[in-house]
């Protein structure tokens, strides 16, 4: 397995370089260094000298990919691309174009994102699996039909509706939780109640539908038929055998998203005033802060690759038939 992991790490390097090149190219197709300077210097009274000065101070006065004037190795190293990209590979994110330390900001902002995402995931899984099992247990009955139709209806409702409706109902009308806000330590708990409840309810539709499909598919397998034929009670069949086998796709599906839980959710964090990473990239794109954009895209790519590797590993752990080689 170690050899497999090492190989996957090496495979990741060209992928990350590719992502970096694409991000760089896309960003600078839309924004020139002059545009970036103008946005950072403000709308009023920006002089051409100030723009030149800003570019020089931030290293954006160099050519993008190839520095023809430099000669030698500097032809490629004394460029915006090289200067901005190399340190990423040792996770040195440097400073944002506004001068803030990006690594520090990420380390501060990822915890609130996680504080929402983790309970959301765990509580959500518990509820979705429970309801899906119940619906599967009563399959082909009116409970199953109502369950599936309700799931489809709930899936069709916009996430924004859950947030605004939840804030209105639980925060504004019933006064049982703060509408928005955040605090540190245990004080954060009361601010998590509303987003977590809303997040869990918002995901019921898709979660139940997906897990029900897994369980129903599992229930049609031969070993289930055998168990029933042997007279094993339906509940034992369902909760012992079907649940255990059905957990394989569920578990691997969960593992793949684990690393990216840190990255947060833009809409949830915006509406609940959670100081997470969700809005960090979007804010950076709006303010044309390339330093943050490249760092976040790089980090997102690394976490995605990590998620895939973890999924592969988790397969071998939960299903003895699978071996990594």
């Amino acid at each position: 397995m170690l050899a497999y992991i090492v190989r996957r790490v090496f495979y990741a390097i060209p992928i990350l370089i590719g992502v970096n090149i694409i991000t760089f190219a896309l960003f600078f197709v839309v924004n020139t260094p002059d545009d970036m300077a103008r946005v950072h210097l403000g709308v009023k009274r920006v002089t051409p000298e100030a723009i030149e000065n800003w570019k020089q101070q931030h290293g954006y006065d160099k050519p993008l990919f190839v520095n023809g004037e430099a000669g030698g190795v500097d032809t490629f190293t004394d460029t915006i691309f090289f200067q901005n990209s190399v340190k990423l590979f040792v996770f040195e994110f440097g400073n944002s174009d506004e001068g803030r330390n990006i690594g520090y900001d990420i380390s501060k902002r990822m915890w609130p994102s996680l504080a929402i995402a983790l309970p959301n995931l765990i509580i959500g899984l518990f509820f979705y699996i429970t309801i899906a099992l119940l619906v599967a247990f009563f399959r082909a009955s009116y409970i199953d039909y109502i369950g599936v139709i309700s799931a489809v209806v709930l899936m069709s409702v916009s996430g924004l509706f859950y947030i605004i409706g939840g804030q209105f109902l639980l925060g504004k009308l019933l006064h049982i939780a703060p509408i928005s806000g955040y605090d540190e330590g245990f004080e954060a708990a009361k601010f998590l109640v509303l987003p977590v409840i809303i997040g869990v309810i918002g995901g019921i539709g898709s979660g139940v539908r997906w897990y029900r499909t897994i369980f129903v598919e599992e229930m049609e397998k031969d070993y289930v038929r055998t168990a029933r034929a042997k007279g094993v009670p339906e509940t034992i069949t369902l909760f012992k055998h079907v649940l255990k086998n059905g957990m394989i796709p569920i578990l691997t599906g969960v593992v793949v998203v684990l690393p990216s839980l840190f990255m947060g959710s833009l809409i949830t964090e915006s509406f609940f005033g959670i100081p997470g990473l969700g809005s960090y990239t979007i804010d950076a794109i709006q303010s044309q802060d390339f330093a943050i954009v490249r760092s976040m895209v790089f980090l997102g790519s690394v976490l995605y690759i990590l998620g895939l590797v973890l999924t592969d590993i988790s397969y071998t752990l939960v299903d003895p038939r699978i071996r990594l080689n």
């Binding site: 504004k172 928005s180 509406f271 005033g273």
Partner: peptide, 16 residues
């Protein structure tokens, strides 16, 4: 000063 990116939560909290 608290961060409020959206106007709806802000408005509801003002009314409260």
């Amino acid at each position: 000063y608290s961060l409020e990116k959206e106007t709806i939560p802000y408005w509801n909290k003002f009314l409260q």
